[in-house]
Design a binder for these strands. Structure first.
Lengths: 107, 107
DNA sequence: TAGTTATATAACAACTAAGTTATATAATCG
DNA sequence: CGATTATATAACTTAGTTGTTATATAACTA
């Protein structure tokens, strides 16, 4: 699962998560994404490249603009992987419940 | 949400995800976690420190051993954040559906 | 108590990441 | 066509990550 590396790594950066949060409101061009941050345009362009590489966003060409929007694929992959942890945590939690239930009578 | 940085960043490494997958099967000591990897014990110890710092695992002291197990907190935080993306993706998808539905009659 | 086992930490090398400025490309506007 | 706007890329700097080996600590074992 090499793509999970890219996806989680992309999400590890707060600027990139903020970009995604902005795109959750709808499509935006590069300059629209630059505006709210105290970063230069090349910095944002590179963040977008990382997000695109991770499958978290897609871009279309519209004249000289490149509007970005959220892509579903990476999120689905992440969800699937996290599902494994969720299930394990539930199981362990049940087990703990069992242990506690077994202990109570002893007390 | 500073902790999301640590959580996503911890999950970005395949060795650490493999460690979590192993812990999903149940508690394990450091040496038990070293065994399946072609890495040295200090390397694994540091990965564990990262996972602990991210709130993905907890460790107890048992004599000279430090058994590790999964912790639920970070996964819950991640799920919560991803929920935002999931909802946005659903909305955008619905919107796309709407667009496609609106286009069909025109064709 | 001396040796062994389990784990942590320090110091270092190699690599990657994130930001900057300067510059290139390419579409649009007048 | 020339100027402007939108975006990308290159070169560089600084900082962080991942691995290694060597060593420290601390609890068991004989």
């Amino acid at each position: 699962m090499a793509n999970l590396d890219a996806a989680f790594s992309a999400l590890a950066d707060p600027t990139r998560r903020a970009i995604l949060a902005r795109l959750a409101l709808g499509e935006a061009t590069v300059m629209e994404l630059v505006e709210p941050f105290e970063l230069t345009q090349p910095a944002i362009s590179r963040h977008l490249k990382v997000l695109e590489g991770a499958g978290l966003i897609v871009r279309r060409v519209e004249g000289t603009k490149r509007p970005c929007r959220l892509a579903p694929t990476a999120v689905a992959e992440i969800d699937q992987w996290l599902g494994m942890l969720r299930r394990a945590l539930e199981t362990n939690y049940d087990r703990l419940d069992g242990v506690l239930a077994a202990m109570k009578p002893e007390k």
